[in-house]
Design a protein around this nucleic acid. Structure first.
Lengths: 320, 320
DNA sequence: TCGCCCCTTTGACTTTTGTCAGCGTTCGTG
DNA sequence: CACGAACGCTGACAAAAGTCAAAGGGGCGA
């Protein structure tokens, strides 16, 4: 756990420069090295998370739409990514906002659950480096056998790496061939341990999957397009950590779910802070189902998605 | 709670510059203002805590002495401020280390107790600005009637200001003229409320006072030098939030303590994280008493103080 | 021991950032 | 309605930081 001697000087340079506000040439003189070396050390210190630069995300959470959503739908916090006007590209901006918002919720010693998907992967990719030694990042669902670009273990590992935290991967396939095999595997001590870790999480970062034929779950080969269609007919509206949920955001007792090795929907629901990030408008129904199911306490969405959520909520609440 | 329009642009500039890594001229073009303005906004954003730059304090906690103290005396974390060599002035460095260490323990929504004294005041003075909206800083002890430079309410207020947190002051004198009056005041709802807030703290930042004749408590007029001498004869070894403690770090049933309006020693003891910062070697006995009394979980001291603590601990533990 | 390779460090150059006096605009006041 | 003060913004200059090719140095295998 001791700092490697090579890193000692990074810490010293960073401390003198950022905390004491010395100039690079003063730091250089102090440490008896050239100023160019100081500049290099400082860059490395930033890259390694020895120095953390965080910007307030108030710009996105302090917005009438965000406040209205919080009040009406009972979220703890909402971040709205603006669209149109001379705003930056919302598709590129959302993972950045999500990463910054996520970091503002995390502290040393936390245990954090992470699911998988394109969205989560994008967030991992822009996650600033931080110094969260003592934190743990836990993978929420089993892995996919087939090589696929957004693997669950990659998301976990990358986020853990960026935070300087410990990453705990889930050493099981996401989908087994039979429910019996899945049951047997769930009883394995290794899997039980993983589930216990998940129940210790104080924060989860995830997205919700849609059930359209070109959805994530189909593309990665976990289910066929036909199977998904059948599930939809049975009431499936979204995908959470590999499992399908119905319109009320409840776990469905279906063939697919019985074969899934993943954090249970109810265990996810009981994690205190549940940050959901949804990029695509196509996932509206899935998101709405997840919200109804109590799976979202912190939300990052586009302005248009936020508006649509509000409209739908009003429509549902109105007649009642 | 909405961002004032004037601050909106600070947030935007900070976001584009620090999170997106744009150059100042790019930010200027984007916001359609001059680059000089961008530079000015960025400075203000840093000063206001919209942007937070934090450096790891591992340099001070990752040290054999620190680790040994943690292991032997059971602290959760120890930071050692180096002395001698080509180190910076330890007297000036300690509050800086303490402030950085403190910030690494704090998160949005925390309730933080703060006591008073020269040390705490120095820490407040170098505390970096941060964006902890939703956090609360609670004053642990009553105020002093006489004007004095390190007033408890000043410490609370200044730390709250720097963190962008809410500051809750303790509207009572520290010492009453009679125990009866103190009792009556303690039963007041306002004071009860304050005590309730203190019991909600998840973190406390304080120092321990010595009982030498020129101690803090005497200088500010709370007790006379003679009274303190008498207390010492009765076993007093240190001062915590205005109250004297004995060599075992326990509250003493003495005239002074019965007249004090302050967080009880036992309520402080049950705060999960208790960060103590001690600058002067003269406070060794007081610190040792506080440690024995379970009042310290996180410690910031000089290398020589750390050595002396270890020696004393070994001496006490050895014969046993 | 020599030579090779790789990583660190440096000096010199370029780019970026900080600063400040002066200008313009706005808002409050007589 | 005119005046003055105050504040914010800008352009130009000075200072600081970033970058890169080349030199230095340490470890390891031959």
């Amino acid at each position: 756990m001791a700092i490697r001697p090579a890193e000692q000087i990074l810490h010293k340079a960073a401390w003198l420069y950022y905390t004491h506000g010395m100039r690079q040439d003063e730091v250089a003189k102090h440490l008896d090295i050239s100023r160019a070396s100081v500049a290099m050390y400082l860059r490395r210190a930033r890259e390694m998370g020895i120095v953390t630069i965080a910007t307030s995300t108030e710009l996105f959470s302090d917005d009438v739409l965000a406040r209205t959503l919080e009040d009406r739908l009972g979220f703890d916090a909402v971040w709205i990514v603006p669209e149109g006007g001379h705003a930056l590209d919302p598709a590129a901006e959302m993972p950045v906002v999500a990463a910054a918002a996520f970091q503002s919720l995390v502290k040393k010693g936390d245990t954090i659950g992470v699911a998988w998907g394109r969205t989560v992967y994008h967030i991992a990719d822009v996650m600033p480096f931080a110094d969260l030694q003592g934190a743990t990042v836990v993978q929420l669902c089993g892995n996919l056998g087939a090589p696929y670009s957004y693997r669950p273990d990659q998301c976990t590992t990358e986020i853990a790496r960026r935070l300087n935290a410990e990453g705990i991967n889930f050493y099981a396939p996401l989908v087994m061939s039979t429910p019996e095999l899945a049951d047997a595997l769930r009883r394995e001590p290794v899997i039980q341990e993983q589930m216990a870790r998940i129940s210790e999480c104080s924060l989860v970062l995830y997205s919700v999957g849609g059930i359209e034929p070109d959805s994530h779950l189909v593309k990665c080969g976990a289910v066929t397009a036909d199977e998904l269609k059948a599930l939809e007919a049975q009431g499936a509206r979204g995908v959470i950590a590999g499992q399908v949920i119905d319109g009320d955001g409840q776990w469905m007792d279906c063939a697919h779910n019985r074969r899934c090795i993943s954090a249970s929907i109810s265990s996810i629901r009981s994690i205190p802070r549940r940050m959901m990030v949804v990029e695509q408008m196509e996932k509206f129904d899935a998101l709405y189902a997840a919200i109804r199911g109590g799976l979202v306490s912190h939300l990052v969405v586009t302005a248009s998605m936020a508006k649509r959520l509000l409209e739908r909520f009003d429509a549902d609440a109105g007649p009642a």
